[in-house]
Design a protein around this nucleic acid. Structure first.
Lengths: 301, 301
DNA sequence: TCTAACTGATCGGATACATCGATGGACCGC
DNA sequence: GCGGTCCATCGATGTATCCGATCAGTTAGA
């Protein structure tokens, strides 16, 4: 066959595709603009197709350039995967891992796990990204992340999952709320209340809904919180009741409020906290180890 | 992060992993042994792990080396995919395509399609590999092939398929065979005969069996042919009857024999000839075009 | 229209790197 | 122990990469 592009050339192109500006892209990857320009020219020669359109004052990716950029990113991620996997043979969890975590998990797990993890694996470089499941999964797939801590059930084709533990939902309301008295309230009783939830996009919203058997709730922006903290505040202000992950409660989410909690009816509806990664990665053994560490360290005592 | 291996280093390592001999691997990829040695040493330094064990007189891959080799092959294939996809933008079907074809299709399609294809796309480089479906699919997945011409149904996760046409099965027996007289024989009548088949591993065997409703046939090595040609000879020698793809008959498989054919009962049981490729390849558009060309050129007039 | 600012392309020189041929050193079979 | 095979190493050489400086084209404002 014929000449292949260099990984370095692909890195250069990716930088350019992200900055759409030779100078800035160049300095971002610590080369000069002239180097980047030459490198890109060479890459275009090898590929035999124009990747960027510099006719105007601004740099624009051509359609094929856009495709190539996406694929190049994946290619580089796989190369990175390769090297990290090789390094992990000598000393697992000693390289860089880019980890995504969802917002309804991060504050209740990371502060308890990371310090110990750091102590145990001093050379582990954990890059953290907090975002919604949907975007974490996308990032995983196109190689921008190595692993993610998310809540299941969630449709994750192409990913492997390792369950860490179950996180049951509990009903939370003001301590003086009628639902807090008497025997465990039924799903119907809960649904009769104004149920406050996180805004759409948070997987916990869907998990909470299915936990109490609701599927198409009334939609009202005014009563949708953007974080568990604000959700709790809203309930504390008497705007309604809500469902919370037990883990959050155990880790002090309700401190300073008048909220009380009680179990839900049925067989302890819960979400499943899991570590996920790209199927087929060479670093699988390392991620499984990371999962076991999280499982051991995140345990609620 | 830190330094990535070079694609060239990976190529060198792959060559070594295939030859398990520095000298031969080096000459196979047209470099000197010293170059290969240095290149591999550098690669091991970058990856921080030994890839081959040269303690004994022979070169052996370490476990991690084995893993890395497999992944490196895939990485290289994707890089190749990238460049070919880029080139295809200017002129589709003008680069190299490594195409696998199953033995029960190759002789009846390729001679009719390739000459015209060559005429229409003079710069297309079609590397052909004839093998059983199972191995073609494996080669596709780990990047040793770009596309394959196979028969469905076949379980092909991770692959995309484009159906070219249906290829019905017909009953074939000596012209003086009782089954050849009277009305269309039932499945039961066929099953009562000695049904000769291709040996296990050929997908056509399974397709033929399901075509006449048999699922667990009597197994007898003596009556299993290794190619359609020998199968036909066995039937011509009066050893039994068989099922043949109509395409093969139309292309003269029975020439010079005393065999006759007739349709099977039921709604024309058939296999499906399809072009398949790795899901997510950048060259999808090109392979779809190749599929359309095959479809048009392979038509039986 | 002219100018100043900014963009990416290009050039020449320095440096790093891959590659080569030759040689060294370990290991084996005879 | 001797010749043969194998991989590692060394020094030389050519090539690719990168940098700083400069050029050329575009834009916005004076």
């Amino acid at each position: 066959m014929d000449r292949l592009p260099t990984l370095r050339q692909l890195q250069h192109f990716i930088a350019l595709s992200e900055h759409l500006h030779f100078g800035r892209a160049a300095s971002a990857i610590h080369v000069t603009q002239s180097t980047l320009s030459a490198s890109l020219k060479e890459l275009e020669a090898i590929l035999g197709a124009p990747l960027v359109d510099r006719t105007k004052r601004s740099v624009v990716l051509t359609p094929i350039g856009h495709e190539i950029a996406g694929r190049a990113r994946l290619l580089l991620a796989e190369a990175e995967d390769l090297t990290q996997a090789a390094k992990a043979v000598r000393a697992p969890l000693s390289g860089a891992i880019r980890l995504g975590v969802i917002p309804t998990v991060a504050p209740f797990v990371l502060p308890y796990v990371l310090p110990q993890l750091r102590r145990r694996y001093p050379s582990l470089l954990l890059f953290l990204v907090e975002d919604l499941t949907e975007r974490l999964v996308t990032s995983l797939r196109d190689g921008a992340l190595d692993a993610a801590l998310i809540a299941l059930p969630f449709d994750t084709p192409g990913l492997e999952t390792a369950t860490l533990f179950n996180d049951p939902f509990v009903l939370a309301a003001r301590a003086d709320h009628p639902l807090m008295a008497g025997k465990t309230p039924s799903d119907e009783a809960v649904q009769a209340e104004r149920l406050l939830l996180l805004r759409d996009g948070h997987c916990m919203r869907d998990h909470a809904l299915s936990a109490c058997g609701v599927h198409a709730p009334r939609h009202d922006d005014a009563f949708e919180a953007t974080s568990l903290m604000t959700l709790v505040q809203m309930v504390d202000n008497g705007l309604g009741v809500t469902l919370l992950p037990q883990m959050a409660v155990a880790r002090g989410l309700l401190k300073g409020t008048n909220l009380a909690t009680r179990p839900l009816s049925g067989d302890a509806p819960a979400r499943e906290i899991a570590l996920v990664w790209r199927k087929g990665t060479l670093r699988r053994a390392e991620f499984e180890l990371l999962g076991r560490e999280f499982k051991a360290l995140a345990k609620i005592k």
